[in-house]
Design a protein around this nucleic acid. Structure first.
Lengths: 102, 102
DNA sequence: TTATTATATGAATACATGTTCAAATATCAA
DNA sequence: TTGATATTTGAACATGTATTCATATAATAA
């Protein structure tokens, strides 16, 4: 396989970097199946509302999450299904025995 | 879906964090199909040998890469096939148009 | 209007970390 | 042994960033 160009690597790495933080990863996970409002995310994950909001801003800017206001609340959800696949594949990687090979 | 537990999130995020750095991501990519020695990785990616070695240590510790010495050289390669899937899924996510939904 | 709820924003800080440089270690060849 | 090649290791630094706190903005209700 040919080398990954630096610019493409930067683009890809930016997304991995976002879900490379435990808090953000849990936030994405919480929004994986259905839209959830900010306060519910914060309560569910036991994170401060401010912290969740900061992270949501980054996740939305990177198009990992989408959002919509409904009255006072703003709901966020996972932007596409590839996120699901990525999280699933990596979860499998984590859970596999050490000596497993393809 | 149930919330991602903090400890499991930390475990998953650790791996994403590793490939969330452009240099490390390119290193993993370079080792995706065949074993490559350190100096070849450094040359191919135009990174210092020392930097590549530092990154390789982290990638191997997290079991993303495996290694083997052959004479003076030490070869590294991707530890399993899930990495390939993860990179592929995320590459697709990146390349998709904004309004695409599952 | 005022009060309450929900979310966003900006500053400040403490900590993590990517990179470089120099030196150490290991293998092979002569 | 000596020298050359390949890789690792540790310190140092500069930059990035996750989190908290206080404040601002927006929508609803009375």
């Amino acid at each position: 396989m040919t080398a990954l160009p630096a610019d493409k690597a930067a683009q890809l790495a930016e997304v991995f970097h976002l879900i490379g933080d435990p808090s953000r990863l849990r936030i994405v996970f919480a929004c994986l199946d259905e839209p959830v409002c900010v306060s519910d995310i914060a309560a569910q994950l036991a994170l401060s509302q401010s912290l969740v909001s900061h992270h949501l801003r980054l996740l939305k800017a990177a198009r990992l999450l989408d959002s919509e206001r409904r009255g006072q609340k703003i709901f966020y959800w996972a932007a596409d299904h590839h996120i699901r696949h990525v999280l699933n594949d990596m979860a499998i990687h984590i859970s596999e025995p050490d000596d497993f090979q393809e």
